[in-house]
C-alpha cells in the first residue's frame, strides 16, 4: 500500500517537474545567448582598445570611430547572415522543394518575405545587448535623423543584394546535397568579407578590392559605415546607387542559377 503510493507519487512528481524543466530550457538559452554576446563584445572592445594603446589614429580612424564601428557591425550581423542555405537544405532533405515550387506564389519572393521577417526578429533579440553596450562600452548612436534614414535605406538594399547572392550560394546544395560543411565554410567567408572584424579602411588596397568585388560588404560594412559616421552622409546617394546595381546583377544571376540548378535536385526520398 505504502509502496504503490510511493511509486505513484514519484511518477506524478516527475510529470510535475517536466513543465518547469521545459520552461527553464528556454530561459537557459536566452541567458546563455546573452552571456555569449557579452563575451564577444568584451573581447572586441579590449582587443581594439589594446590596438589603439599607442596610436591616435589608424588609417584615418580614431579609437572611438573604430570601436563604434566594430560594435555596430557586431549587432547588425543579422543583415548579412540569412539562413537561406539551411532553408534550402531542409527543404531538400524533407523533399518539400517540389511542394514549394508548385505553390501559386513566387518561390523566391516567398523566401524573401520570410528572411526579412527573420531579420526583424533577430534584430529585436539584439536589443538587450545593444543597451548593455551603450552603458558598458560607451557605444554611441547618431542623433541625426538623416543618418538613420540613410542607414536604413542602405541596410535594406544591402540585405536584399545579399539575399540574392545567398540564393546563388544556396543553389549549390542542389549539387553537393551536403549542407553543414558548406554552411560553416560560407559563414567563415561571410564574417571576414562583410567587414565585421576589421573596418575596410584598414585593409590593404588589393584586399579591399577583393572584398568590394563580392556583395558581403554591401550588407554590413557599407550601411554600418554610414551609421557609425565613418562614411560621410553626402556619399549616401552614390552608395544606394551602387547597391541597386548589385541588386539588379544578383537578382538576374540568382534566377539564372536557380533555373539550371533546379533540374539537378536529387530529392532524398521525397
Amino acid at each position: 500500500m505504502i509502496q504503490t503510493l510511493n511509486r505513484r507519487f514519484s511518477v506524478y512528481s516527475a510529470l510535475f517537474a517536466m513543465i518547469p524543466k521545459m520552461f527553464m530550457a528556454y530561459q537557459l538559452w536566452f541567458w546563455a545567448g546573452m552571456v555569449m554576446n557579452i563575451i564577444s563584445i568584451t573581447i572586441l572592445y579590449f582587443f581594439w582598445d589594446a590596438i589603439y594603446a599607442n596610436s591616435a589614429a589608424i588609417s584615418g580612424l580614431t579609437r572611438e570611430q573604430t570601436i563604434n564601428y566594430i560594435l555596430l557591425a557586431f549587432f547588425f550581423m543579422p543583415l548579412v547572415g540569412n539562413d537561406l542555405l539551411w532553408e534550402f537544405g531542409s527543404n531538400l532533405r524533407e523533399g518539400l522543394m517540389i511542394h514549394h515550387l508548385l505553390r501559386p506564389v513566387n518561390f523566391q519572393m516567398m523566401n524573401y518575405a520570410q528572411q526579412l521577417g527573420g531579420l526583424v526578429t533577430r534584430m529585436a533579440f539584439q536589443l538587450p545587448i545593444i543597451v548593455l553596450a551603450v552603458f558598458l562600452f560607451d557605444l554611441k548612436f547618431p542623433s541625426d535623423l538623416n543618418t538613420w534614414v540613410a542607414f536604413l535605406i542602405s541596410a535594406l538594399l544591402g540585405f536584399t543584394a545579399m539575399f540574392f547572392f545567398s540564393w546563388v550560394l544556396a543553389c549549390m546544395t542542389f549539387y553537393t546535397t551536403e549542407i553543414w560543411g558548406l554552411g560553416v565554410l560560407i559563414e567563415g567567408i561571410t564574417i571576414f568579407f562583410s567587414g565585421s572584424l576589421v573596418p575596410l579602411a584598414m585593409m590593404p588596397e588589393w584586399l579591399r578590392t577583393i572584398v568590394l568585388s563580392v556583395p558581403f560588404a554591401q550588407a554590413l560594412a557599407v550601411p554600418v559605415g554610414l551609421l557609425s559616421g565613418i562614411t560621410p552622409l553626402s556619399d549616401a546617394p552614390r552608395i544606394w546607387l551602387i547597391q541597386l546595381v548589385w541588386i539588379a546583377g544578383m537578382g538576374v544571376l540568382s534566377n539564372l542559377v536557380f533555373h539550371f540548378a533546379v533540374r539537378k535536385i536529387t530529392v532524398q526520398g521525397g
Binding site: 553537393t176 551536403e178 553543414w180 560543411g181 558548406l182 554552411g183 560553416v184 565554410l185 560560407i186 559563414e187 567563415g188 567567408i189 564574417i191 571576414f192
Partner: peptide, 11 residues
C-alpha cells in the same frame, strides 16, 4: 567538408 569547414572560421 566537415574537417575543412572549421578552417574557414579560423582563417
Amino acid at each position: 567538408l566537415g574537417a575543412a569547414s572549421t578552417i574557414s572560421m579560423q582563417a
